[in-house]
Simulated assay, not measured.
Amino acid sequence: MRPRFLPVLLGAALSLPAAAQRVLLRENVANDTVAATFGPNRAYFSHVFVAYGLVLGPAAAPGAAVRYGRSAEVQLGLRNKWRLTQSAALGLDVRYARPVFHLAQHAQKTVPNATLHAREYLALPQAQAEGFLRLNYGRRGNAIGRYLDLLGGGGWVISSAHHYEDGAASGARKVQTAERGLTYVNRWSYSAGARLGSGRFALVGRRRFSDVFRATEGTRYPELPRWVLGLELSWL
């Protein structure tokens, strides 16, 4: 009886490799739509960024002079970009910005009053949105590469504060005061500018066209400097 089983066993053994090589699932990575549409140089991309810029340019009058080097704006935001062509894209930034104007202390000072202090500044935190047109140049793969952005946007002043500090008084080494909810400050701002970048780094310049102070205040508050120039770092 034993020899009768040999052909059966041999047939079963020969069929095992064919079964082991049978394809149960096929997958084409190129058909992954997420990988094909999201990326630095693909149809859509978003990333977080931070920026720091110095306030530049002249004030409208000596009474609104600021301390350059200390007057600055800090930003934290999210950037969204939609590719139009290989060389052009549209984008929208939403961000938190905190411009601070450190006021120069001298006899001609008028903003927000003529009183002199050891240190004094206006802080105007804002929620901002800014659109941009991106023009790419140079060779690149799926990367940000080199680009020029044309910027335009605006913001809403979340809060306003006038901070000042004086010397010793009544046994204290210094006295700090904060006045909040300034009625003489505009609630809306708008600006335009340009951004020149390469990869995660960019040089950004903007000019504010709106006034910091309300028009109803007349000549009481001459306008503060309008330019900001700074650097930007992106998390890609």
Rank of each mutant, 00 (worst) to 15 (best):
H106A: 14
E165T: 05
L16F: 12
K174W: 11
Y164D: 09
A118M: 03
A61M: 08
F101W: 15
G63I: 00
G141R: 12
L224V: 02
R2N: 13
S71E: 10
A215F: 01
K81I: 10
A123I: 02
L90Y: 14
F101N: 03
G91P: 11
A161N: 02
A89N: 07
R98N: 08
G193M: 14
Q86L: 02
G63L: 01
I158R: 03
E73T: 08
A72D: 13
W156I: 13
A97E: 12
A168H: 06
L14H: 12
G218I: 09
Q126F: 02
A127V: 13
G131R: 03
A59G: 09
R187L: 12
F49Q: 06
S210R: 12
Q108I: 01
F5W: 11
N136I: 00
H47T: 01
L9H: 06
S46P: 04
E223W: 11
P17E: 05
P62L: 14
R173F: 14
A43R: 15
A59Y: 00
W188C: 06
I144D: 04
A129S: 07
A129V: 15
E27N: 05
S46E: 10
G171V: 00
Q128A: 15
A192V: 14
L103Q: 04
I158S: 11
V111T: 07
R42C: 13
